[in-house]
């Protein structure tokens, strides 16, 4: 052979997008919400974030090692999971519980199913629900923002009481918007989440389909059915409180557990929205974002299968 040439299939150039950069973008987008959480809930919040991220990274590294697979911590997906989990935990949670959540998310939900891209449910959300069921008290004790630790019911809990006709202390829109309310570390400040979401949309890391349809559906259903009479629900209150903003922009849009087709993403948004509203309005739980997204996660393979688009100039696929 004269000189040896590399022979490969076209295309011979590739775009700049890479997995690590996408994950970094998500981390950057989560920073405003993280900072808001630390501002409102103090040092304790930093510790929770630190512990979950560390637990996720360590579990990712160790599981891959035990399974004798290539290390994947450099793709930063474990950091995203850790950060998302922390933002979904109450600031007062004992740190060891937060660590258990991180390990559960990575080892059980992600790596045992094959690692990045293979898990069928969002690891951070499953971990949160796992903790919620394992440690009910610690996971449902919320405090008001500020230096004094005063336990306080969340705005959605207040709303539930209000609709029942009981005495309730509803939060103002402004407090809901900036995040001056009780709740999980990263879910309270709508404005901080929206700043991050705008960055993700701008960077085209996520599409508008799922979050906008999700939030829109919640608004619609809570407006129609969420009040003491029909069409009197306080939908603004609903979309600004609880984990909806965080869930819609950062969890329901999780690539691995959301559909890849346009139609599928619309269905995902509607499904999440309706389920969230139904859980909030008609079950014993004040909040339904986690369960709604997880239920829709399970449907994703089915949704993708039934929304295979017509090819350009072609016929519709039969599923």
């Amino acid at each position: 052979m004269e000189n040896r040439l590399v022979v490969s299939s076209s295309p011979h150039i590739r775009g700049k997008a890479n997995t690590q950069r996408i994950m970094l973008d998500v981390i950057i987008a989560l920073l405003p919400a993280t900072v808001a959480g630390i501002y409102f809930f103090g040092l304790k919040a930093i510790l929770v974030v630190f512990v979950t991220v560390l637990a996720c990274l360590a579990s990712e590294y160790l599981t891959r090692r035990v399974l004798k697979k290539e290390s994947t911590i450099s793709d930063l997906s474990a950091v995203v999971t850790g950060l998302l989990l922390a933002l979904n935990l109450p600031p007062t949670i004992p740190l060891w519980m937060a660590a258990v959540g991180g390990v559960f998310a990575i080892v059980i939900v992600k790596q045992l199913f094959g690692g990045l891209g293979q898990n069928f449910m969002n690891p951070a959300l499953v971990a949160r629900v796992f903790l919620l069921n394992a440690f009910v008290t610690q996971m449902t004790t919320f405090v008001s923002p500020g230096p004094d630790v005063i336990s306080s019911a969340t705005p959605l809990f207040q709303m539930k009481e209000f609709v029942k006709g009981n005495e309730a202390n509803l939060a103002g829109y402004w407090d809901l918007f900036v995040g001056n309310i009780s709740g999980c570390i990263g879910e309270t400040s709508a404005i901080a989440i929206l700043i991050g979401a705008a960055y993700l949309l701008f960077r085209r890391v996520i599409g508008w389909e799922i979050p906008i349809v999700y939030i829109g559906s919640v608004a619609l259903v809570t407006w129609i059915l969420g009040g003491q009479t029909l069409l009197s629900g306080d939908w603004i209150y609903h979309i600004l409180s609880g984990g909806l903003m965080l869930g819609a922009f950062f969890m329901a849009t999780d690539y691995t557990t959301s559909p890849v087709t346009f139609k599928g993403r619309i269905i995902m948004g509607i499904g999440c929205g309706v389920l969230t509203a139904v859980i909030r309005l008609y079950t014993g739980y004040p909040e339904g974002v986690s369960y709604a997204i997880l239920l829709m996660n399970i449907c994703v393979p089915l949704i993708d299968r039934y929304t295979v688009p017509k090819s350009f100039g072609g016929e519709k696929a039969v599923a």
């Binding site: 997995t19 996408i22 994947t72 990045l116 690539y255 691995t256 295979v308 350009f312 072609g314």
Partner: peptide
């Protein structure tokens, strides 16, 4: 590396296919 199901291939396909 592993497919993260981001859907970029779907968006990029001019023939409206699902490359993944």
């Amino acid at each position: 590396s592993a497919c993260i199901r981001c859907g970029r291939c779907v968006k990029a396909c001019p023939m409206n296919l699902l490359p993944l």
